[in-house]
Write a protein that binds this DNA or RNA. Structure first.
Lengths: 107, 107
DNA sequence: TCATTACGCAACCTCCTGGTTGCGATTAGA
DNA sequence: TCTAATCGCAACCAGGAGGTTGCGTAATGA
């Protein structure tokens, strides 16, 4: 299942930053948010926020639509769900393996 | 739940690389593996592999014990399980939100 | 119409990442 | 004992990440 890794690695990389997790949390109401709206209260420039949003967009976890003078961002649940499934499969694998190891040691 | 984000972000960052996912996959049998063993077949130097293993170790997803002349690495399931839980909580949140949005639109 | 708002693009900076090579130290085994 | 295996440390490099500033442009609304 190496293709799952190739698909999920960029998603994990996108999730590997507290600022981006905060942005995703702000987007988790499912609604559209503009950049200034998302940047409000964060300790960095609007351009900094824009860069993080581009990272999230390249990883496919958000989408962007221009409406009037603002860029509205929305969360895209599916890639993150795929990444979660990848983690579930992987952890099931080593949980089983560790259980078997423990069993074979205990007896 | 911002503390969960702070705890999980480094784990996600560690998972955000195909080489490291491959290393974790090789470690997912729950057994101890030496560096040369883990590096076998990968298209990079032993030192390159060592650096990736250090990243995984700093993120807490593997542990390392020196035995004789080799360094044996083992997977540590708990931090990854925590990251998976973080993803589950987050996705449940936006799945609900999106469902409510859809419902309020359809009627 | 005109000021304000929201944005994109580009340049620039610093620091980290991912990778290499070289070398020395320790352990294992014939 | 002597050679081979395994590793760690340090230096080095190119490129990307994360962040800033400056500036130009399009949309909004009074």
């Amino acid at each position: 299942m190496v293709s799952g890794a190739i698909r999920s690695a960029p998603v994990f990389a996108a999730l590997g930053d507290v600022t981006r997790l905060e942005l995703l949390s702000r987007l988790s109401d499912g609604k559209q948010h503009s950049i200034v709206q998302l940047a409000d209260g964060l300790q960095l420039t609007r351009q900094g926020v824009t860069k993080h949003l581009q990272v999230l967009k390249r990883a496919g976890v958000v989408s962007c639509k221009r409406i009037g003078r603002e860029s509205r961002f929305t969360i895209r649940p599916k890639p993150i769900a795929k990444a979660k499934e990848y983690l579930s499969r992987a952890s099931a694998q080593w949980d089983d393996a560790i259980d078997r190891l423990r069993a074979s040691v205990e007896e």
